[in-house]
Amino acid sequence: MSKTYERREFLADLVKFPCATLLLGVSGPIKALASAGNEYQASEHNYAMGVQIEKCIGCGKCVEACKIENDVPMEPYYFRTWVERYIIYTDGEVSVDSPNGGINGFPPVESDKDILRTFFVPKLCNHCENPPCVQVCPVGATFKSQDGVVLVDDDYCIGCRYCIQACPYGARFLDPRTHTAGKCTFCYHRITEGLLPACVEICPTQARIFGELDKLSTPLNRMMRQSNIQVLKAHMNTEPKVFYSDLDGEVR
């Protein structure tokens, strides 16, 4: 590529990212560099996750890692993330299971029937753009943070469980120790430190991709450009921010 082309590209980028232009123009490069390394600015981020169905091997390592990282009760009724196995038989029967959320993997298929297709689906809070759980919380104890993560304020939650009823994805539970709503935080304490969520860090096949939704050159954005993207229960108009590639129509 010629030098003129590079310049044109640079100028185009300046138009595309007016914030950066402003920052460079007003504060100068030194200040811009300083702010990059220092304080975490929530308003500069908008997080999302991609899940590549075709890469998930159903090992359940993400479920285990999530429970360890976030101190989720180990009993099999409380999950911030879990893995479901779908088996679609040639006669049209659909069988779904998630023994203990898939934390110990999956047993072999018992049925002798012919299988049409089968796959694993990791699930977690979708961190919806229009979160119904936030809509219904009577006191403002669950909320969407500036960086697009749906969080729960444990010190303010009254434990009415309306949010659990309102979530179409079964992503919430009542923590038996705090008696407040529990859910995935995208490992908020990790991502604000520049680390990946535990499930993403630990996934052996990198079936999960975490990143910025609004930035163009990220692995998440590349995956979303190159795959057929689906979200769960799109008709609910919750606008989920967990994007699945090649999701089967049977998945609910």
């Binding site: 890692a65 360890i68 990282e69 976030n70 101190d71 969080l151 729960v152 304020d153 935080t185 908020y188 304490h189 990790r190 604000t192 430190e193 680390l195 535990a198 860090e201 630990i202």
Partner: peptide
């Protein structure tokens, strides 16, 4: 929430 302890 952000001050939760990191394990991994």
């Amino acid at each position: 929430i952000a001050s939760h302890e990191i394990q991994f």
